[in-house]
Design a binder for these strands. Sequence first.
DNA 1: AGGGGAAGCGAAAGCGGTTTCGCAAATCAC
DNA 2: GTGATTTGCGAAACCGCTTTCGCTTCCCCT
Lengths: 332, 332
Amino acid sequence: MADSVITLSDVAAAAGVSLSTASKALNGTDRISEATREHVRVTADRLGFRHNALARSFARGRSQTIGVLTHRASNPFTRVVLATAATELGAKERAILLYDARMEEQHDVTESILQLRARRIDGVIVIGTSTSFRTPSFSSRFDVPVINAFTVPEDPQDTTITADDYAIGRLAISHLLSTGRRRIAHFTAEPHDMAAQRRAEGAGQLLAEAGLQWAAPVRFGRWREEWGEQAATELLAEVPDVDAIFCGSDAIGRGVERVVRAAGRQVPGDIALIGVDNWESLMHDQRGTRHLTTIDVGLEEIGRRVANRLLEGDLEPGTQYVEPHVVIADTA
Amino acid sequence: MADSVITLSDVAAAAGVSLSTASKALNGTDRISEATREHVRVTADRLGFRHNALARSFARGRSQTIGVLTHRASNPFTRVVLATAATELGAKERAILLYDARMEEQHDVTESILQLRARRIDGVIVIGTSTSFRTPSFSSRFDVPVINAFTVPEDPQDTTITADDYAIGRLAISHLLSTGRRRIAHFTAEPHDMAAQRRAEGAGQLLAEAGLQWAAPVRFGRWREEWGEQAATELLAEVPDVDAIFCGSDAIGRGVERVVRAAGRQVPGDIALIGVDNWESLMHDQRGTRHLTTIDVGLEEIGRRVANRLLEGDLEPGTQYVEPHVVIADTA
DNA sequence: AGGGGAAGCGAAAGCGGTTTCGCAAATCAC
DNA sequence: GTGATTTGCGAAACCGCTTTCGCTTCCCCT
């Protein structure tokens, strides 16, 4: 017997019980005396038996596999959510089957959906690339649970776990205020970008609550270093006494920092800088020190929660936000 | 019939052939007349039939699933490889089952391996976190193909696809030379880090071939911004006429850049800077402009190749290197 | 015309479990 | 002590597809 792999009937035979009894004993289903149950367990262990997951999935009609739909798996944010969700699912013996929408511009998403159904997946995770724009709803196209991650759902009834841009804005300002800053500016992305809007809105509101206002009107541009450079150059000319800049992304922050330093201002002495994304942790794997103070939007938490809620069958409709947190470093 | 899903026997019945004929017709196996084959195909399409992947896997004993072993799925480099491999595999209808070693410090990797075998996976991808250190070999522990990605294999006979640190070093210097630099320095990580060693070695060799030598001895430290700052500060004091710095990572490069600019030197006018990692693409999803000139080590290419070679059964033993490439931006 | 081989198809045996159902023995109520 | 339940277990159907094997028919060759 050393040659091949042991099946449940081997166990049953060795334990002197029927196949069905062995199955029930190991699964804890149906009524089986504690004595036999234990006896079967022991023999199974002794033989080194493991269920054939394929056979089992087939018999149960459940694949232990979760489908994942991404719009752009090459997006770094998507990847974080994907990797953490996959890790979480792997720890619970679930495989994932990933379909990236970009690869299917030809045979559209419908094909992927059919494939997923053919695999008899137990659930679906739809990962967005950002909270900047709405993504279409897929929930009605599956007969299994669907849960959205890191996106602004089209249908508010869809179960969604995502970043809280409003809270991000508030948190950034709150941190700057707590370090004594009062003349604060904000650079962010395009005005029609929802994430940019909400962060600006949250920030503006907290500022107002503190009885303050922006040191200069919010500057909308792009999520890029070069935009940070440009905006900072303009700002320093117009509002020289600014003492803090809330940068809508870490990339913007990097550009801003160069210009601010080049202008001879100390960071954070003269001007404090705070970004959003925790870019460095995306590069540095948590360890070590940071340079740019930033807001972590909680992508890993999103990945974990989305996986766990799907497994637990907790599919309460509506959007759930993860709490952002400040990552303090050198610049604020 | 509208209620439930259609099975192969439904197709067979509708086509007026036997179940086995229908199976063979759709699979293209065995001898079936072209007429019947086509007829079955058409009927299957008409009914909207799709194979039940679970039943099929079970019958064939092959799961269409690839196991992935990571040492630290939270590592950003690992994630890139993981995400691209998963995308590639998904496009070919393969699921992945991810086990992250870190989650199993208790019940060690052996347990994961047993689980993977129970799933009857068709192959294994082992993703390392870097080319800095060797990772143990798993190939002997599976009876299916195993392929390593982004790692230095312990056993040189293991099929491995990884980054070419030696070429990275050469390429960085080659680019700097091509832009006319001659007084070049190099900052990198710990001296016992293999990636650091090889990059330095490749770089040094190309320099020698050009009849040059380092403007200052290679400085070994860490992969971090703060190390870049420190090394640059020291260097500028000792070797003021340096005209280029090859930074072992983009993080180091960022630190170096701050110090160089703060010292009043132009970048790249006075001093050119080149890093390694393509950190910004890891953040920016390919689009838009860059700031730091860098070497892309080819992580995505590794992910793609590893997936495809596994699917194609191309498991020639030994290490295959992916070619790095220069990403030109503002600093060199 | 007769024999051998190939082509085309169907019957049926798995693949390795889960699950329904029925039956005998044990337990309970009175 | 009898009938009604409950408990514990086994027989067998089933999940939906693949694959072996054998049977018939057709073709070709001599």
